[in-house]
Simulated assay, not measured.
Amino acid sequence: MNRLTSAIFWLALALVLAFITLPLIVVIAASLSPSSEISLDPAQWTLRWYGELSSARWIDPFLLSVRIAVIVAALSGVLGLLAAYAVIHERVPGSEAIMSFLLAPLSVPQIVKGVAIVLFLSQLGLQGFLGTPALIAAHVVLALPFVTRMVATSLANFDRGLDRAARILGANKFQRLRYVLLPIVKPGLLSGVTFAFIISFNNIPLSVFLVRPGDTTLPIAVINHLEYSLDPVMAAVNVASMVFILAAIFLFEKIGGFSAQLHGGSK
């Protein structure tokens, strides 16, 4: 019976891995094809499609997406840390209602949020904010619940005895926050910031309503290109984006220990 269970487990694992990796393999093969026809013959593969990514058509949207994602990650990290600290650690009055309010954006479809933000700015006569400012604000609203929840999880597991011990040893509040609390919540904060960066960089539903000519993010540039042609350049863009996101995750892991949050510890 144990052998049968183990065989079923490994079979299920193999099927899941195949389901995840096979589309990626097809995309990578398409990005290396000599023509629009996908070629699985390595002898015919070429990197010329990646050379087209160096044009301003792709570099400018990529740089804009990176700038927006960095700003969104930083703002979401600061706001999420402060919100989680006030609700979980300080336990301000109505903390449960405040946490529910902070997580409320998760229950609203992104398309609805995009339309609502456009209507809100139009009613206030702030159409000039459409573009990068509106994208940053909308992405922060979208990413903030993830950061807040992950930091709140770290704070919920915080041993308050450590804070009391530091206070007895003469540490002031700032020192306790700097040397006791922050190192413990850092994995949760960094994991939330990583999610915020990825969500902002890859976002389409919100961005499609808020971009304006000259402020086109990479996902929107991909959609605009698909309206006219489907060629290996699209596969090259997707592969390059995937490599960039993996590199960003690796960087955040090295800086603060992204995976430590998964194990409930700190790094």
Rank of each mutant, 00 (worst) to 15 (best):
N2A: 05
N2G: 14
L4R: 08
S6Y: 00
I8G: 12
A14I: 07
L15W: 03
L17E: 12
T21W: 10
I25F: 13
V27F: 05
S31P: 01
S33V: 02
P34L: 12
S36M: 15
E37M: 14
E37H: 07
S39Y: 02
L40Y: 03
A43P: 07
Q44Y: 06
Q44P: 05
Q44S: 14
R48V: 05
E52K: 02
E52Y: 04
S55F: 04
A56H: 15
I59A: 11
I59K: 10
D60M: 08
P61E: 03
P61R: 02
F62N: 04
L64M: 06
S65R: 02
R67A: 12
R67P: 12
V70K: 10
V70A: 09
V72E: 02
A74K: 00
A74E: 07
L81R: 11
L82Y: 12
L82V: 14
A83N: 12
I88A: 10
I88S: 13
G94L: 09
S95H: 15
L106M: 11
S107F: 15
V108Y: 05
P109N: 03
P109S: 03
V112Q: 08
K113W: 07
G114M: 02
A116G: 03
L119Y: 12
S122M: 14
Q123A: 13
Q123R: 12
L126N: 09
G128K: 13
G131T: 06
A134D: 06
A138V: 06
A143F: 02
A143M: 07
P145N: 10
P145A: 08
F146V: 05
F146M: 09
V147C: 03
V151D: 03
A152T: 06
N157Y: 07
F158I: 04
D159N: 11
R160W: 11
G161N: 08
A165I: 04
A165K: 01
R167A: 07
N172A: 01
R176K: 11
R176S: 11
R178M: 15
R178E: 14
V180S: 10
V180C: 08
L181I: 12
L181D: 00
I184T: 11
V185H: 00
L189F: 14
L189M: 15
G192I: 00
V193R: 00
T194H: 03
F195N: 00
I198Q: 02
I199A: 10
N203L: 03
I204L: 05
S207D: 03
R212L: 12
P213Q: 08
T216A: 08
T217C: 04
P219S: 06
H225G: 07
L226G: 10
E227A: 02
L230Q: 10
L230W: 06
D231G: 03
P232F: 01
M234Q: 04
N238F: 14
S241V: 09
S241Y: 06
M242R: 04
F244Q: 05
I245D: 05
A247D: 13
A248N: 10
A248T: 10
E253R: 15
E253Y: 06
K254Q: 05
K254P: 07
I255A: 14
G256M: 00
G256P: 01
G257V: 01
F258H: 03
F258W: 01
H263W: 15
G265W: 14
K267E: 11
K267N: 08
K267Y: 13
